[in-house]
Write a protein that binds this DNA or RNA. Structure first.
Lengths: 204, 204
DNA sequence: AACATCAACATACAGCTTGTATGTCACGGG
DNA sequence: CCCGTGACATACAAGCTGTATGTTGATGTT
């Protein structure tokens, strides 16, 4: 067996650390979470933590990647299924994808970890890295395609993708913190959709 | 004299605290700035700090209000002058205002303090409060007016204002962290303007 | 004018937290 | 079979925040 049992144990403790940290970071935020709580929940000691990660920030980085990867994967599979079920125009897929993106962002973990603490802990540019790494180069890709098809106006893709992502992120925050989440979700979705519609090709 | 000299000294130390904290928070971020550095720069002791502010977060709150108020004021005066110089259509003023907003957000202090550390330190909802307090209820006002004039489509104003503010905030981050800030500023401005244009009333 | 009082600080202290240095033990190769 | 090394656990040092206590100068009172 190439993968020894010991190696499994190692991976297991690492995963336990990331999982415990994720729960606590999402619940109380990065600053308010002590390493002691994390290792207690993971049922290891701080020694294990500092063996696997250089410092607390590195652990947070791992958690953030975890959350982002999960969200990206959920979005992709969701959209792939939709595209299969209903092979319509790319435009409709883009609209649908935006709404799905909104729903994905509205999960609690994503909000607190990626949107709130991420930039503060890892400095600005944390987003850039995430964006580059976890595929919403995907988003840029979609936009490029839509432009090539003449469905939306030509615009610099890089800033457009980032601004739209920020738009949706904020929409998710708005939704989550509203008194009436369902109503807020509808309103936010409506606004997002309208903004996207506004980008459609203006008939020359 | 109703305002005694002692009172001036008190206000002076408080201002010195806020100013020193603002510089350091903007430069190194909230978490990386110790209270000792702050009071050293303000040439007082930590006792003074904890006399004027309940804790470090309260000081940050004051700094954030300071930065936000300054930005809001700059924006307003700028726009008022523009409106006076060139009393055109409200639509043009809205477009111009967005670009000004972008420029205001691009100042270093605003980025780090309000956009990055603000939500993380004071929790989400810090934005809501700022938005409500420092007038970009102004923004909502403009939008309402533009809708009433039939210049842009009817949409829920609250989410629209927040999403547009987030859009511009992200545009400013994009601009500031780009290799070529000037080019990035142009691209970001172009995208923002295009999004805004997209909201114009669709001829029924 | 002497005195009490209180605000505006300064100083000293206690507790918590992070990171590191050191120790231990099991596993795995030679 | 034994020794080295990785994977932890433990113990320690340093820094930071918040609080409790001390001090001083202004201010109001009689």
């Amino acid at each position: 067996m190439t993968v020894t049992r010991r190696a499994q144990h190692v991976a297991d403790t690492r995963d336990a650390l990331v999982k415990a940290a994720r729960e606590l970071f999402a619940e109380r935020g990065y600053a308010a979470t002590g390493t002691e709580e994390i290792v207690a929940r993971a049922r290891v000691t701080r020694g294990a933590l500092y063996h696997h990660f250089r410092d607390k920030k590195a652990l947070f980085q791992a958690v953030m990647n975890d959350v982002a990867a999960e969200a990206a994967e959920a979005l992709v599979t969701h959209e792939l299924r939709y595209a299969q079920d209903q092979p319509g125009e790319p435009w409709d897929q883009l609209r649908h994808g935006f709404q799905s993106f909104l729903d994905v962002c509205t999960t609690g973990d994503f909000q607190r970890v990626v949107l709130i603490d991420g930039p503060a802990v890892l400095g600005p540019g944390a987003w850039d890295q995430l964006v580059d790494e976890h595929g919403h180069g995907l988003l840029a890709e979609w936009l490029r395609k839509a432009m090539a098809n003449g469905e939306i106006d030509e615009l610099p893709v890089a800033p457009l993708a980032r601004l739209l992502a920020a738009l949706i992120s904020e929409a998710s925050m708005f939704t989550a913190r509203a008194e009436d989440p369902d109503a807020a979700r509808r309103e936010a979705g409506q606004v997002v959709d309208r903004v996207l519609q506004g980008l459609r090709r203006t008939e020359a």
